[in-house]
Amino acid sequence: MEQQAFVEHSPHQKSSLTTRRIMLDVLIALAPAAVMGCIYFGWQALLVLVLTVLSAVLTEIIWLLIRKQTFKEIFKQFDLTSVVTGLLLGMCFGSQTAWYACILAGAFAVGVAKMLFGGTGRNIVNPALAGRIFAFIAFPTIVAGGWLGANFTESAGEVLTGATPLTDFLTNNGVMNTELWQLFFGYGVPGCIGETCKIALLAGYVYLIVRKVIDWKYPLIYIAATGVTTMIIYQSFEVFLPSILSGGLFLGAIFMATDYVTSPKTLWGNVVYFLVLGIITAVLRFATGIEVVSFCIFLMNLVTPLIDRFIRPKPFGYVRPEKEKTGKGPAKEAGK
């Protein structure tokens, strides 16, 4: 009876939510798109996903081993973030990506973009995006050239090769030859493993909202801003759906840009972040003629600390300090 009781700071009860659980939810949400990617693009797609995930996870474990941590400690702090990174990275590769590119990109994503900056929660840019951009620059022909599209009417092995609908759209001045329903289901559409099947991505989006992992507003803001800006650029209402349904916009908006670590912390910060993201995506797509979602998110990741610095909530009961009274209001006025 008289045993020493356990003592800690209040609160003495906490929610059951953990980082690992959130990451598991993200993985579950990614699963439909990953599965559809493997169905559309075959075993090569599965190989790419497995390689990137393995590479990402092993990089983290090796890093921690070098830091002299035991396997027990590593398992205890393993929060599935590197699995998410690896899977996301694989999903924004084409199915023809060479095995060494997958492994190097996975190692770069976790080793350089995440662990070098201090591990989970300390990275400045989304590791998966950093990995993708690394691969894009290091192996331009392997990653970007020769997109394949699934086409079950052709015999196996004779899959369509060609430009993605988005490059098609951008080079033909806003006209696309692919049907909208095809874009929506991703059937026969060349592109990255995870980005073509929009309906699977939307299923993941709904799951994330139901599990309260992400705010439903943010991806919508991004997608809508991109679509509207494209409409303004081309002076046409018809480009709205093709512009948002093609390319990696859904994958980026739902899974990449909403990454906790690299997006702003406040509601209004996030609104600004996603709005600007949508606008620059549309403008840069038009200016460069290639898919730029990953670069845009990467750019905005770098701006995030700045947004967090200037857009902050006002404390409850905040009164704007009068000029002569300085130092009384504990929270600083935004932008001043």
Partner: peptide, 24 residues
């Protein structure tokens, strides 16, 4: 009770949304 050990912050913003004083 809660016997959990702290893990790194992932900046999810849940605390800011819960804070009744609207702090960070």
């Amino acid at each position: 009770t809660d016997g959990s050990t702290p893990t790194p912050c992932v900046s999810c913003g849940r605390c800011a949304r819960a804070c009744p004083m609207h702090l960070m």
